[in-house]
């Protein structure tokens, strides 16, 4: 079973949901399709979507909501 990783495209603060109080874009265990938004990264007060370039099953986030993230750092893992 291969594991695929979605990397942060930019540095900033990672958010799981579109806005506070709303459910996360994806729950752990969800299936992700290529092109799905799986989170947001706030860089200098601007919000940028984190888009999965690859799809997969059983998503597992390695970052918590509101974690600081550097560009290229893994955001979540997906199974084939």
């Amino acid at each position: 079973m291969a594991v695929k990783t979605v990397l942060a495209p930019i540095p900033g603060i990672f958010y799981r949901s579109p806005s506070p109080g709303e459910p996360p874009f994806k729950q752990d265990g969800d299936t992700v399709a290529p092109g799905d938004t799986i989170g947001l990264i706030e860089v200098m007060k601007t919000f940028n979507p984190v888009v999965a370039e690859v799809g997969g099953r059983n998503v597992k986030f390695v970052l918590d909501n509101e974690d600081a993230v550097m560009a290229g750092q893994p955001v979540c893992e997906l199974e084939d």
């Binding site: 900033g12 007060k45 600081a68």
Partner: peptide, 12 residues
């Protein structure tokens, strides 16, 4: 200052 890393977390 030279060598300072402007962090991504705050105002620009």
């Amino acid at each position: 200052y030279e060598g300072y890393a402007v962090p991504p977390f705050y105002d620009s």
